[in-house]
Design a binder for these strands. Structure first.
Lengths: 182, 182
DNA sequence: GTCTATAAATAGATAGAC
DNA sequence: GTCTATCTATTTATAGAC
C-alpha cells in the first residue's frame, strides 16, 4: 500500500515538474497534455488519474513552479532589495537560461484568461513575493512598487525583440528598486 | 479603381479593428481567425486576401490597437506623469471596460511566444510609450521605470483574483511614478 | 475580393484492456 | 495506475465557384 501510494505520488510529482517547466516557458495554450506526459515519460491516458483537467494541472503547476524557482529556496536568500534585484533582473533569467524561471513574470498576461482556480493560485504566489519584498522595503507600498519593477520589468524585457533595449530596461529597474531607508 | 481599392481598404481595416480588440482582450491563442472574420462581418475564406497568416494579422493588430488606444490620441494628452498614471492605472482600464485597452500590458507575456515580426512590433510600440514617458520624466532611466510601473502594474493587477488587492497595487504604482523634478 | 467547401493537423477528454 | 485506441471538436490554411 505504501509503495503504491508512493508510486502514484512520484508519477504525479513528475507530471507537475514537467508541467511547471513547460508552462512557464511556453504558456498555457502552447503546451499540450501530450507534451507534458511525454516529458514525464508517461502517456496521455494516464493523465486523468492525477488531474481533472488541463486547467487543474495549470493551477497546480504554477505553485510547483514557484516552489522550484530559485527564489523560493531557503538557501541564498537575498539580504537586501538590491541583492534581490541583481538576482532576479538578469538577462539569464529573462532568456530562461535557468531551469525554472519565475512564473509571475513569464505568465502574467496568460493568467487573466484562465479560471478562478488559476487566478487564485497566481494571487497567492504573488502575495508571497510581496511579503518577501516587504522585508527589504520601507513599507508595503514600496514593496508593491518593488515587486512591480521586478516582475513587470522582467516580463516586458522578455517581450522585446531588441536585447540591448531589454538589458537597458533591466538595468533601469534595478536602479529603481528602493531599499529600506537607513 | 478607386472604389475597389477603397473597398478593399475598408475590409482590411474592419478586420484589423476586430482583431485589435479581440486579441488585446483574449490573447493570441484564444482568438481564431473565424472569430475575427465574424466580428468583421466577413467569412473565413476572405481572410487570406488581406493577410498571409494569423501571425501576420497579430502583428498588424498590435499596431492598430496601439493607435486606437486612447493613450495614442492627440487630444487629452496628459500633461504630467501623475496625470498619465491616473489615466492609465485605473480599474476600468484593467477590467477592460473601455473598447481598446493597452496591448503593451494586456499581451506582454503573450508576445515572447511569437515570431520576430510580432516582437518587433511590440518593441516599436513600447518604444513610443517610453518616448512619451520621457517627456514627463527626469531622464531616460526614470522614464523606463515609470513605463514599467504603469504597464507592469496594470498587467499584474489584471492577473490577480482579488480585486481589492489589484486596486491596492494600482494605487501603489500611481504613488511610485516619479515626476520631473521641479 | 468574397463566398462555400474541405483538406489536414492537433488537442482535450473518454473507454476499456491489462 | 498505466497503457492503446478513439471520439469529438476546433483550427489553420487552401481550392475553386462566382
Amino acid at each position: 500500500m505504501a509503495w503504491q501510494k508512493n508510486h502514484k505520488g512520484q508519477s504525479k510529482d513528475k507530471i507537475l515538474q514537467s508541467a511547471a517547466m513547460l508552462f512557464t516557458h511556453h504558456g498555457f495554450d502552447k503546451v499540450s497534455i501530450d507534451h507534458v506526459m511525454q516529458k514525464a515519460e508517461l502517456t496521455r491516458g494516464a493523465f486523468y488519474s492525477h488531474f481533472s483537467s488541463k486547467s487543474d494541472l495549470y493551477a497546480q503547476a504554477i505553485t510547483k513552479a514557484a516552489q522550484s524557482s530559485r527564489l523560493s529556496k531557503v538557501t541564498n536568500k537575498p539580504q537586501s532589495i538590491e541583492e534581490f534585484g541583481k538576482y532576479y533582473l538578469t538577462s539569464q533569467h529573462r532568456d530562461a537560461q535557468c531551469q525554472q524561471p519565475c512564473p509571475l513574470a513569464f505568465l502574467v498576461s496568460d493568467i487573466s484568461q484562465q479560471n478562478k482556480q488559476v487566478t487564485k493560485t497566481y494571487t497567492k504566489v504573488f502575495n508571497h513575493f510581496v511579503i518577501e519584498a516587504e522585508k527589504h522595503s520601507k513599507d508595503r507600498e514600496q514593496a508593491l512598487q518593488n515587486a512591480v519593477l521586478m516582475i513587470g520589468g522582467l516580463a516586458i524585457s522578455r517581450a522585446l525583440e531588441d536585447k540591448k533595449f531589454g538589458d537597458e530596461l533591466l538595468q533601469a529597474c534595478q536602479a529603481g528598486l528602493a531599499p529600506v531607508s537607513q
